[in-house]
Design a protein around this nucleic acid. Structure first.
Lengths: 193, 193, 193, 193
DNA sequence: TATGAATGAGTCTTCATTCAT
DNA sequence: GATGAATGAAGACTCATTCAT
């Protein structure tokens, strides 16, 4: 029944990660603007001082958290890339992947959080652009620059829609739109390999 | 005593409006998170006390400001509706309107600011949805629900793109994509009227 | 027996003065380095917030307090000037004034506090120089630049001595030294007015 | 296991000295108020823990550093004593030594730093007095108590002047003043030795 | 009613000191 | 013994909100 909180084990690596993760969660849930040392410490279950021990300023910690989110997103994007390489970049495949992505609420929120944060912070623009640019990059070989970009923009719109709107979009709506955007550049995936 | 002195802003209505407008500007410029009584008073050119006189809490004032932005957006949407009624809902007309909208940086920023704020505040969702829903509404008669929704989503994506990305999109990219999305539902505007 | 501290009367003028005075006292007693908002508030008997209400930064408040001390010093220097004008700048008169000054512990401490603060803050140098320069200025007409400066420097040394050393200096020691420094430039005060 | 590895600073004595020296430097450069464990460790090139290993509190370390500065001063004072013993205590010799002292900015700053620190810490008074008292002691045999004290006070004033004022004092000003203070007690140095 | 002074809660940040390793 | 991670007590500063005037 001793109420003196025992000093924690020394494991800087883990602690850093716990703090960054907590900050990332809070950004997703409440936005970058609401981030405070206190809220992070509470969420991470560490004393206030720990949040300033590893990061010189809140700005730095915020940056780490956003990069953490970006890394999460990158990992998913890499999965998408791999799938597209195997199954082809047809509207059906893309729609499938989008619906999968929408089903992962956490992933969706992380992605939109980064973009949202970028609206009022030019330094984050590059981070925010990445997802969309990579998606366009995956499509450009098969569909050309303009169609690829337009498709990526449409997909971005879909993600936003699902973040703001409660009614989910139907697969056929998404697939038809993509088919229209990609037009006659659509070809079945190559048989080889 | 001289009645030449212009009636000192005795009009509470006007003052309220001045304050709300100032708050709306600040939200657009710096985000909802940076809003303070002091910054609003300074921007509006009114004493600090005036900002608490007319609005019980900062939250309330923030809400009014966001509603003000929404009303601004509605006014522009109404203009779009009128134009579409006259010129038809073809990709060319839509592209024209989108490019016009992108050229109005202030309008664009206002719109994205409301959506951004809505990401972390469910109460604002309805406000944020409005623009997209109305746009879809204008297209539904000519193109059907799904195509209209898809087009509105694409347009939303275009607006986001221009907010995050520096390189502007070409008219042909936008028009081609819209043409693909709206597909064979596209018809020339009616001759009548 | 109500323990709710009643909100104070509104008298900004007085409050500012109370705060600056408290800060000046603390500088004299504990040095500029030990100055904190909290210590000032406690000394002044005002809530913490009051110390930040009137001064944008602690630096600004510190500056005001030092200027307050400088003004105190200036007032005394003006008294010295007036006395020297009437009674002449002889060693005897100077010694008399010095001993008077030394008797006023508070004045002495204020003076040395300003100089001490200037040691590590170049911005205060000018403030710290003033006393010595004015003293030299009073003597220059009668004794020439070098002797006047040397006398002022000696007096400065006397003030420091009395601040650090417990044993007081005798009047004869001071007077003899001044007589030596001023040398044959010493003349009795003019008879006229 | 090669014994070529230079014996890792295993010498606690040396480490203590390194830390104290670093602290002393910092006091001279930035004042006692700005002293922190971290700044000392950084300056000394030792780990943070070393600064708390050898000194129970920062206060203790600060005291050691000030005593270190006092010892430095003593060493220079001893040099002055030796010179005065050889060359005599004439104004010319004293002026020479003063100008030499003023040229050694580091020495000057160390000296004033100790005095400055003593202003707000009575425990340091004795340390701060030492320089002046020793200087007077060197002169007392040749010039008597009062003149010696007065000369020491004047020299102290000169040191302060150079710390606060940008314009340096001329040798003739200093020498004349000393000549006046020491008066007819001045004698050429003894032939002996 | 209109104003801005008053207050304290809450923010970021720095550091002395403790103590696990 | 030596190191640096851990902790919390301050410190500067900002502001929503209250309320005297």
């Amino acid at each position: 029944m001793s109420d003196a909180a025992p000093r924690r084990r020394r494991d800087p690596e883990t602690r850093r990660r716990v703090i960054v993760t907590a900050a990332a969660e809070l950004i997703v849930e409440t936005g970058v603007g609401a981030l405070t040392h206190r809220s992070i410490a509470a969420r991470a279950g560490v004393p206030l001082g720990a949040t300033t021990q590893y990061f010189a300023t809140l700005d730095e910690l915020r940056g780490e958290a956003l990069r953490h989110l970006a890394a999460e997103i990158d990992a998913r994007v890499e999965g998408i890339r791999a799938t597209l390489a195997v199954r082809g970049t047809t509207p059906a495949v893309l729609t499938d992947l989008i619906l999968q992505g929408l089903a992962d609420a956490r992933a969706l929120e992380a992605d939109r959080a980064v973009v949202t944060a970028a609206v009022n912070d030019p330094q984050l623009r590059e981070l925010a652009r990445r997802w969309s640019e990579q998606m366009a990059g995956f499509l450009v070989a098969d569909h050309g620059r303009d169609r690829a970009t337009a498709a990526a923009i449409f997909i971005d719109g879909v993600l936003w829609h699902s973040r703001i709107d409660d009614a989910p979009l139907s697969a056929s709506l998404i697939e038809s739109a993509l088919a229209g955007i990609l037009g006659d550049s659509i070809r079945p995936p190559s048989e080889s390999e």
